[in-house]
Amino acid sequence: MTTRAVEAWTLEPLVTFVKEAGARLVLVMTSAGQVMAQHGFSRAVDVMSAAALGAAIIASTDEIARQLAQPPFAVLNHQGERHGIFLGAVSTGHGKLVVLVVYDLHVSSLGLVQLFFEQLTADLQAASPKEGVSKQVLAADFERELSESLNTLFGR
């Protein structure tokens, strides 16, 4: 399984996280769903839908937290029969990032994912460029940028 990054500074923290947490699939993206790095996905279409769904879950829970007048939920976990899905937010010099992790319950556990997610958070914060948040993507540029990102993420 390969790990690829659109933003090079995300690569090393992600590779370490995958190795230590035993994660099966990982997406690092902006809160708008723009993918910055991925591990384990074989098809671009899967990345696109996972990113959109992950961003939507974060947006929904942020809104619930807002209505409850509390800070946004730090992490979310869904446990299935064979797999767990973990979503966590990371504040970096590059803005807020969302990490989506799919882990196999035979290989990893929520405890391990949480433990090494803390490490991932610290590593991403240390590695992120400090020049500010990533630029807003204009609708006109969106398709081109998406296509370029996917090409990078799948080594084409």
């Binding site: 399984m1 035993g22 099966r24 384990g40 074989s42 196999d104 035979h106 290989v107």
Partner: peptide, 11 residues
């Protein structure tokens, strides 16, 4: 088959 080989590599 992809899932099973992926699982193999996890182990």
């Amino acid at each position: 088959a992809f899932d099973e080989w992926d699982m193999t590599l996890r182990i």
